[in-house]
Simulated assay, not measured.
Amino acid sequence: MLVRDLPAPVTASKADWLPGATWLGFTPSDGSLQARARCQATIKKQFGSGYVLEYITANFGQPNPGFEADVDYLREREEHRHIGGRLLAIHRLQPNFKPLRDLIGSDEYARIQDMWSQGADRIRWSVAFPIVESFEIEGRPSARQVFGEAGYRRLYAHPSKTLRPLKDEERHSLGELSIIRREVQNAWIALEDEFAAADRSEIDPKTLTDIGDDLSDQALEGFTAEQRAKIRRRAAWLAEGFVRRRREAGTLSCDHCRFDPISLIGQHNITPRSLLDVHHKHPISLGTRYSRIADFSLLCPTCHRLEHRLLAVNSSLFPGD
């Protein structure tokens, strides 16, 4: 898979000396609630609906006195020798941040602050966005080689506590890099708020049926029955929002054959929505890549049946995909 095959653009880059396995953290200007909120809003606006490129800085930070011989610090410093100056991964972040303490626990949070925080505020990387989808960049290429000297300096030659927005030419340079999907540990934690919102929401029974048919037990293999129910309802909740946007835009028609129910029902008491199905385009990959709005399409029943037949055929021909 190439970067250009991702369903959304890479909108910004994060630069830090430590790689992010399950979260990317940012340090607010101070410990106040207002500073945290500003930091959260800024980062969320910078990555928008796109992906974040992870760059590992050429320099490695100095820990606070007393940690120079810390085992974890020495291990991380040795790891950095092999990845400094390189493009490591591409992540999709959960838009709703979680306090770092909630993600890693009080003991680990205290250790990080003891080691890295400056001054009285113990807030290093305290505004954290869980990684809900992640791809390793094959070969971990040098940022200078990918972007050229001018692009590299524009992005990384200056310090920043936030993200670094990418230009179109920089996205183009990334486009041909090969990436490998990797498992994400914090995806479930990151989705808890959305599970709760889905539970509170009214969802059209037809949407629930459509999504339930698409997200079979095979697609959700490895999850408990309770988790499957939550995943299906969240997907239906997202699909309901997708249909609502299509209705507001006046585009309730089949995405394949362009069938428009309004052209046939006339004055009859039939809703256009009742003649269309919501289709989940990537059900088999849900176990590692939770549903997004971009995963849905509107199809007439005939096109929907065809999609499922094609999916069954492709799955039998390429069982490992």
Rank of each mutant, 00 (worst) to 15 (best):
R4S: 13
D5R: 06
L6F: 03
P7D: 01
V10L: 02
K14Y: 11
K14L: 11
A15S: 14
D16Q: 14
G20E: 02
T22A: 05
L24C: 01
F26G: 02
A35K: 03
R36G: 13
T42K: 08
K45S: 13
G50P: 02
Y51K: 10
A58Y: 12
N59T: 15
G61R: 11
L74I: 03
E78F: 04
E78Q: 10
E79K: 15
H80C: 03
H80S: 02
H82K: 10
G85K: 11
L88F: 09
L88Q: 09
Q94F: 01
N96A: 05
N96T: 13
S106T: 12
Y109F: 13
A110T: 03
D114F: 03
Q118T: 07
G119A: 08
R124W: 15
R124F: 15
R124S: 08
R124N: 15
S126W: 01
A128N: 05
I131V: 13
I131M: 06
E133C: 01
S134R: 11
I137R: 09
P141R: 08
S142R: 12
R144P: 15
V146W: 08
F147K: 09
A150V: 08
A150F: 03
Y152S: 07
A157E: 15
P159H: 09
K161T: 10
K161E: 12
T162K: 05
T162N: 04
D168T: 10
R171H: 04
S173R: 15
R182M: 06
V184G: 05
V184D: 02
Q185C: 07
N186V: 00
N186D: 06
W188M: 00
I189Y: 06
A190H: 00
A190M: 04
A197R: 08
A197N: 07
A198W: 04
D199Y: 02
P205M: 04
P205Q: 06
K206V: 14
L215P: 06
L215V: 02
D217T: 11
L220K: 01
G222K: 05
G222R: 01
F223V: 05
T224M: 06
R228I: 00
K230Q: 10
K230I: 00
R232G: 04
W237R: 02
F242D: 05
R245A: 15
R246C: 12
E248V: 07
S253G: 11
H256V: 13
D260N: 15
P261C: 08
I262E: 15
I265Y: 03
H268D: 11
N269Q: 14
R273V: 13
S274N: 09
V278W: 01
P283T: 00
S291Y: 02
S291Q: 02
I293R: 14
T302P: 07
T302M: 15
R305Y: 14
R305F: 10
L306T: 14
H308A: 03
L310Q: 09
V313F: 15
S315A: 12
S315Y: 06
L317H: 05
L317R: 14
P319L: 06
